[in-house]
């Protein structure tokens, strides 16, 4: 579980931390945990804080000089034990725009191939005093392991089919940009719910922000007792789409192989591919999202992916802002923790 005790010490009291205090109108921005391991562990206020902060960060990427000195001298390590171009690049750029020093260690170049355990890798990296660790890993709970081992702030960039919190946050920011608020919206997530960390994080995030979440998948790709996550479940796409404000289609992981979940991509597209015809069942102002990378003609038709309802590229831009916000906020929590330790 995320550690919260240290962070609850709150803002530095006068007399601490170099005797500097904040002006009254600049409230301290606080996440409770030193780590971002999953949306499940955040409350709605924390999610809103991240989204609000991200909203202000968007503007930085549009300046002539796309860089602020905020995290100067902080070191951010990207630990990618699973291939990922988009998320890794997004975190790297986010860290660089905040002037942090970044280093990416990917599975192919790491000592993991030499048989080192995750805990030993974590201890070795910890010994180099990083401030923030970003981890992508194939197994659920890997980020939790790292967070327990390291005093640096840990950001989960995807742990197996468990969580991918920054994806859900960037999705929420994108929806908020278009719909104003998330409360009361009907959001449909369709596709491989069983193996999707994006689905899980989005379900938590959207529900905490007051949306109704609907999932649609063939029963072979729907996890057991999915209703326990607080969603409505459909085994056909069409009825799920009725009245939808937002439709998220998930990537079908063709590389997973196996012929037991659906017989062919052709049949999958016919039943669950988001086509214009199917999308017409949703609200007129529906927006279409996809976490990428897309399989055109499998889970989504090209004319939908590139059509007027698509906000897929905005998701990517917002990903940058959200990751900047998370890095900024967690760098603060980490410093708070260190202050508490020093004082103790």
């Amino acid at each position: 579980m995320p550690k919260t005790k240290e962070a609850e010490a709150g803002p530095a009291a006068p007399g601490d931390a170099g005797d500097l205090i904040l002006p009254v109108d600049q409230q301290a921005a606080s996440l409770k945990s030193k780590d971002l391991l999953g949306i499940e562990y955040l409350d709605a206020d924390e999610i809103q804080l991240i989204l609000d902060t991200a909203h202000h960060f968007k503007e930085i990427s549009q300046r002539p000089i796309k860089k602020v000195p905020t995290l100067r001298g902080k070191s951010v390590i990207n630990l990618f034990f699973e291939p990922s171009t988009r998320t890794r690049t997004s975190f790297e750029i986010a860290a660089k725009r905040l002037s942090a020093d970044t280093q990416t260690i990917s599975a192919s170049t790491s000592s993991m191939v030499k048989g080192e355990t995750l805990i030993d890798t974590a201890r070795n990296i910890e010994a180099m005093y990083p401030d923030l660790l970003i981890i992508r890993h194939a197994f659920p709970g890997a980020a939790h392991m790292l967070a327990r081992t390291c005093s640096a702030a840990v950001i989960n960039a995807g742990d197996g089919a468990h969580e991918h919190p920054t994806q859900a946050l960037l999705d929420a920011l994108t929806i908020r940009d278009h719909k104003g608020s998330i409360e009361g919206l009907r959001v449909v997530i369709c596709g491989d719910i069983a193996h999707s960390r994006v689905a899980r994080s989005n379900i938590h995030c959207l529900r905490k922000l007051g949306a109704t979440v609907v999932v649609a998948a063939p029963p072979t790709l729907m996890p057991c007792d999915v209703e326990a996550l607080g969603v409505e479940a459909f085994d056909r796409l069409e009825p799920a789409l009725e009245g939808a404000d937002v439709v998220m289609t998930l990537r079908i992981q063709l590389e997973r192989g196996g012929k037991l979940s659906f017989p062919s991509t052709r049949e999958y597209f016919n039943l669950f591919g988001l086509s214009r015809d199917k999308l017409a069942l949703a609200k007129d102002d529906v927006i279409v999202m996809h976490p990428g990378p897309m399989n055109r003609g499998v889970e989504i038709a090209s004319d939908v992916a590139d059509g007027p309802a698509s906000v897929i590229l905005e998701q990517v831009s917002n990903g940058l802002a959200v990751r900047m916000a998370v890095l900024y906020l967690l760098a603060g929590v980490g410093a708070a923790k260190k202050n508490v330790e020093t004082a103790a």
Binding site: E40, P140, G160, E163, H195, C224, D225, A228, L229
Partner: peptide, 15 residues
Amino acid sequence: NEGRVSTALGFKGHP
């Protein structure tokens, strides 16, 4: 075990 917890945590479940 396969159930609500495996679904929440993203683990393959043993039914």
